Simulated assay, not measured.
Amino acid sequence: MDEEAVSSDVENGEENQDEDEEAVEVRPLDQDIIIPGLSLLCRTGNGLRHAFIKVVLKDKRLSDMAAISNYIHLRFMDVSNNRISDLSPLSSLTQLLWLKMDKNYVTCFPGQTFSQLVYLQWLSMAVNRLTVVEGLVGPALESLNLSGNRIQRLNGFESCLFSKLGTLELRGNRLTTTNGINLPNLQRLYLAQNLITSLEGLEKLESLTTLHLRNNKLGNLDGLNANMKCLQYLNVRSNDFLDETCLRALGLVSKTLRVVILSENPLDGTTDYRPYVLTLIPKLERLDKEPVSLEERAEVWKAIKELKEETG
């Protein structure tokens, strides 16, 4: 899904959640709803019996999912676009690998529920009503999407709880800082459409290759750190950079950066920042939408060489 589609989905989801809850009749989950949604018949652990391992219960106006707790062999579950707030029935589904609960009414992660889901690898809870992440653990989680919630702080993202997490999406929340993500194995971090004014704690993200910070409130890039020795893609489009001095910290990650997006900042209309950025990052391959040409690269190397000669 492209960036614009993700943005639209988050915004539309938030609008839908603000609708009058009484306008839509809700109902509890029962066998009549579950059975038509089951698929993928597979052998169970001992190989002598069979069970359905996938259930899709999207758009059912569900108010709870207590009845699902009896289907202990489920591995794939989609209950998106309902009115569910209680996650505790999930604790008995210890074989879950994949769970999608977008567009529900979840406000928090109940204690011990996710500690039972030791095989869960993919979780999406975009556009709910989450304000904190405490209570969520994921020893096997590789991808986590919490976009479009109301999260204001990132306490809880510790490497001991999410040792395999490679992708974390927190677009469209209410974060003001990047501090609180202690995940040295994380590779992709999406923080667009927040209220972030400062970059903090990034030195812990040693494996990060992609950092997405579009539509925030950043006034500079202070906080980028040389420990980020894998960073290749940085998107800081639509922030509050006023002049080239706001970009100096790019030099700290210049060895690996290959793509930088800076368009739609205030400096975009006042200065040609392209030569300055290419001087900071001589190996850059693309700046905004334009690839770096061989001619540009040659001019940058020439300028750097001349500067070194002048300064001795």
Rank of each mutant, 00 (worst) to 15 (best):
L280K: 10
L280F: 15
L262F: 05
L284Q: 03
L280M: 15
R274I: 03
S263N: 10
L267T: 06
K289F: 08
P291M: 08
L287C: 10
K283G: 02
L287I: 04
E285S: 08
L280A: 13
D288N: 07
Y273S: 14
E290A: 05
S263G: 07
D268S: 14
Y276S: 14
P291L: 02
E290S: 06
G269F: 15
Y273W: 11
L278N: 09
R274C: 11
R286G: 07
K289I: 06
Y276G: 11
R274G: 08
V277T: 14
D268H: 12
E285V: 07
K283S: 07
G269S: 13
L267V: 08
D272P: 08
S293I: 00
S263I: 00
R274F: 00
R286S: 04
D288A: 03
P275T: 03
T279S: 12
D268W: 15
V277S: 05
S293P: 08
Y276N: 10
L284D: 00
K289Q: 02
L280S: 10
L280Q: 15
L267P: 01
D272Y: 03
L278I: 08
L262E: 05
R286H: 04
T270G: 08
T279I: 14
T270E: 13
D268A: 14
T270I: 15
E285I: 06
Y273P: 14
P266Q: 01
P282N: 10
I281Y: 01
L280C: 14
K289R: 06
I281A: 01
N265T: 02
L278M: 15
K289N: 01
T271I: 09
S263E: 04
L278H: 10
T270F: 14
T270W: 12
K283V: 02
G269P: 13
E264G: 03
L284I: 10
E290Q: 11
N265S: 07
V292I: 05
P275D: 13
G269E: 14
K289L: 00
Y276A: 15
G269W: 15
P282S: 07
E290L: 11
L267G: 02
L287D: 05
D288R: 02
I281E: 01
R286N: 03
D288I: 03
S293V: 01
G269Y: 14
E264V: 02
L287N: 04
L280R: 13
E264K: 05
D288E: 02
L287G: 03
S293W: 00
K289H: 04
S263F: 03
P266S: 04
S263T: 03
R274Y: 09
D288W: 06
D268V: 01
L287P: 09
T271Y: 09
N265I: 00
Y273I: 01
N265F: 07
P266I: 06
L280G: 14
L262N: 13
